[in-house]
C-alpha cells in the first residue's frame, strides 16, 4: 500500500477516509485537520491562555503538544487521583509521563492531588460515597479542572476527548434519550457566567486509532496502561461495538457524530441549559443550593468523624444521579 501524497510505502491506512499515508504525510494530514477543527469551531482567540487537562495518556499529551505547536500559551494540569498499587502505580505512571512532556514542551505542569483536596483518594471515595468509582473520578475532575482554570486566570480549558469518546457518550445518551445531555454535548461549551470556564475538545474528529498513530509516529511517550477501574466499563463496550461497525462499514463513526453535530440544535431548543446558581459553600456554579463537590467533601468529613466516634451507624444514603465520567482523563 502506497502513500496517497508521495507514493512511498504507507505507514497508516485510514479506511474511513479511503486513504493511506507515509509517516511524514500522516503527521502533516493530522496537524492540518487539527488546525481545521480548531478554526471551524472557533475554539481559541489570539492571546488566549489555555489549560490542558492531561492524564499521561495518548490523547491529552498529543493535544498538549499540538496546542503548543500552534503557538498557544498552553499549560498542563494533572489531577492525581491516587489510583493504583505497587504492581501498577497507575496515577504515578501518568504523572511521570506528564512531567516528561512538560519538560519537552518547556511549559508548566500543575499537579492537584484529590487526597489533599478532599481527604480521600478516588478509590477511597468509592467506599465513602457508595457510588461507582468512575462517578467520583468524573465529579472531582470536572470541579477541580474548572476551579484551577479560573484561579489560574486561563481563558479556555482543553481536554483530549476523541471521536470514540464522543461517540460512546453520544450513544449512551441516545440509548436513554437523555435530552439534557444530548443538548450539552458539543466540541465547544462556551463560558457561562463568570465562574464556568469555556471548554473545548479539539481532538473530537480524530478516532482513538488516529491519535495513537500520531503519538507513535511523532515519538511521544505516553502511558499505555489502562485504568484498573475501567475494566468492563460500559464506555469501552460501546467503543468496541462501534469499532466492529466501523470495520464492516468504514466512516460510520464519523457520520454518526457529524450528523449529530449538524442536528444538535434540536436538542438545545428542546432542553435549554438549566439556570445556574452559585454554591452556598464554595460559590462555584451549580444548579443546586450546595454543589456536588461540596456534598462530597461533607460526606468525607462525616465518614472521618464516624471513624473517630466508633463503628459506623447504619444510615440511608440518598441515591445520586449517575453521570458519565469524562473519558480519557483518569489519573
Amino acid at each position: 500500500m502506497k502513500c496517497r501524497i508521495c507514493r512511498k510505502k504507507a505507514a497508516v491506512k485510514l479506511p474511513s477516509h479511503n486513504t493511506a499515508f507515509c509517516k511524514e504525510d500522516y503527521l502533516w494530514w493530522f496537524q492540518k485537520n487539527f488546525r481545521r477543527t480548531v478554526k471551524r469551531f472557533r475554539m481559541f482567540k489570539a492571546g488566549d491562555r489555555v489549560l490542558v487537562g492531561v492524564s499521561g495518556g495518548k490523547d491529552s499529551l498529543a493535544l498538549w503538544r499540538l496546542l503548543v505547536e500552534i503557538d498557544l500559551e498552553a499549560d498542563g494540569l494533572y489531577i492525581a487521583q491516587g489510583i493504583g498499587h505497587d504492581e501498577l502505580p497507575y496515577s504515578d505512571l501518568g504523572e511521570d509521563a506528564c512531567r516528561e512532556m512538560a519538560g519537552k514542551l518547556g511549559r508548566p505542569l500543575k499537579v492537584v492531588r484529590v487526597l489533599a483536596e478532599t481527604g480521600a483518594s478516588v478509590p477511597e471515595l468509592e467506599g465513602i460515597l457508595r457510588r461507582k468509582i468512575c462517578s467520583s473520578c468524573g465529579l472531582t475532575k470536572r470541579y477541580l479542572m474548572n476551579r484551577e482554570a479560573l484561579e489560574g486566570g486561563y481563558d479556555v480549558l482543553a481536554t483530549g476527548h476523541n471521536l470514540d469518546d464522543e461517540i460512546a457518550m453520544l450513544f449512551a445518551n441516545v440509548l436513554t434519550w437523555d435530552l439534557q445531555r444530548l443538548a450539552h454535548q458539543s466540541p465547544v461549551s462556551p463560558q457561562r457566567g463568570p465562574k464556568l470556564i469555556k471548554k473545548v475538545k479539539p481532538l473530537c474528529h480524530f478516532s482513538e486509532r488516529e491519535v495513537l498513530a500520531y503519538t507513535m509516529l511523532s515519538g511521544i511517550r505516553t502511558m499505555r496502561e489502562d485504568c484498573p477501574h475501567a475494566r468492563g466499563a460500559t464506555s469501552i463496550k460501546h467503543k468496541e461495538l462501534f469499532s466492529r461497525l466501523e470495520r464492516d462499514s468504514p466512516g460510520s463513526k464519523r457520520r454518526f457524530y457529524k450528523e449529530f453535530l449538524r442536528n444538535r440544535e434540536i436538542f438545545e431548543q428542546a432542553k435549554p441549559p438549566a439556570e445556574l446558581a452559585y454554591c452556598h459553600r464554595c460559590a462555584m456554579p451549580t444548579t443546586n443550593e450546595v454543589c456536588s463537590y461540596c456534598r462530597l467533601l461533607h460526606r468525607v468529613a462525616a465518614s472521618k468523624e464516624e471513624v473517630h466516634d466508633g463503628p459506623p451507624k447504619p444510615r440511608k444514603i440518598e441515591p445520586e444521579p449517575a453521570s458519565p465520567a469524562p473519558s480519557g482523563l483518569c489519573g
Binding site: D59, E208, V211, D226, C227, H229, A230, I236
Partner: peptide, 8 residues
C-alpha cells in the same frame, strides 16, 4: 500490537 481503545 498496540491497543487504541482506552477508557476511564
Amino acid at each position: 500490537i498496540v491497543r487504541a481503545i482506552s477508557g476511564g
